[in-house]
């Protein structure tokens, strides 16, 4: 049975590959028919991978000859350097752009209004604490609804006197983002119209997400840290 069947299946698959599916569909025995179909799929897959292996070799050959295109980050960094010289802190702009906070409000307006960039959406503001004695940082994630591109801006600030210009007037959503960052890290955004806590109570002590934060003992006479020792 098996050798004859194998030969028969191979024949039918060859026919089907040439476009004659009826050769398989007309097989009367169900087992043989399903085996033939499986063999056909296998054959097709083999030919596909062979083609795919051949293709990328050509592509790499092409990219080697053409000059590498500038990434968005490099483009943005260059245009910023041209317009606001001395505002970029770090040479490495592959993943994010490190600014020093100087002219940040004007830079934000430029990023939003420049027709090539059009970062009209501020997606997130994150605070960051590098630990004891180190700096605090603010990170902005910008996205353009027109060009579908995104960048990350980082601004470092001093731990003992953390101040960053507010961009609330540029992106309205920045209002609450900045208040939250202020609430958790104590970073003051200069020029914000209402720089108060947003989540914690207004008379809360300390900045909860800083690494050296210690919870206060009582709040209006209510004990804050865990008290019911025997419960664990």
């Amino acid at each position: 049975m098996s050798e004859d069947q194998d030969k028969y299946i191979a024949e039918v698959v060859e026919k089907a590959l040439r476009g004659d599916m009826d050769a398989i569909n007309n097989i009367e025995d169900r087992v043989t028919r399903s085996k033939a179909k499986a063999a056909l799929i296998k054959a097709k897959r083999l030919s596909k991978t062979a083609a795919a292996e051949a293709a990328p070799a050509e592509e790499t050959a092409q990219t080697d000859t053409t000059p590498t295109e500038k990434s968005l980050n490099q483009k943005v960094a260059e245009s910023l350097e041209k317009k606001f010289s001395g505002s970029i802190d770090s040479e490495d702009v592959n993943e994010h752009i490190q600014l020093n906070g100087k002219n940040w409000f004007e830079i934000a307006q430029y990023l939003k209004d420049n027709p090539d960039l059009l970062f009209d959406s501020l997606q997130c503001i994150t605070g960051f604490d590098f630990g004891e004695g180190e700096a605090l940082e603010v990170r902005y994630n910008l996205h353009s609804m027109t060009h579908y591109h995104a960048i990350e801006i980082r601004i470092k600030t001093d731990r003992n006197d953390p101040k960053v210009p507010s961009v609330e007037q540029v992106w309205r959503i920045g209002d609450w983002f900045e208040r939250e960052t202020y609430d958790m890290y104590g970073i003051v955004f200069e020029g914000h119209h209402n720089m108060t806590r947003i989540l914690c109570p207004e008379d809360w002590e300390g900045w909860p997400l800083r690494k050296d934060y210690e919870t206060q003992e009582t709040y209006h006479g209510i004990i804050v840290p865990k008290v019911k020792e025997g419960w664990e």
Binding site: P208, Y213, T215, K226, K228, W231
Partner: peptide, 20 residues
């Protein structure tokens, strides 16, 4: 009843409403 998952490290959660 006890602060739940914020039991140990939740600085902002009351550890049981019976404290109030």
């Amino acid at each position: 009843t006890s602060g739940g998952p914020y039991w140990q490290y939740g600085y902002h959660v009351l550890k049981g409403v019976d404290l109030v």
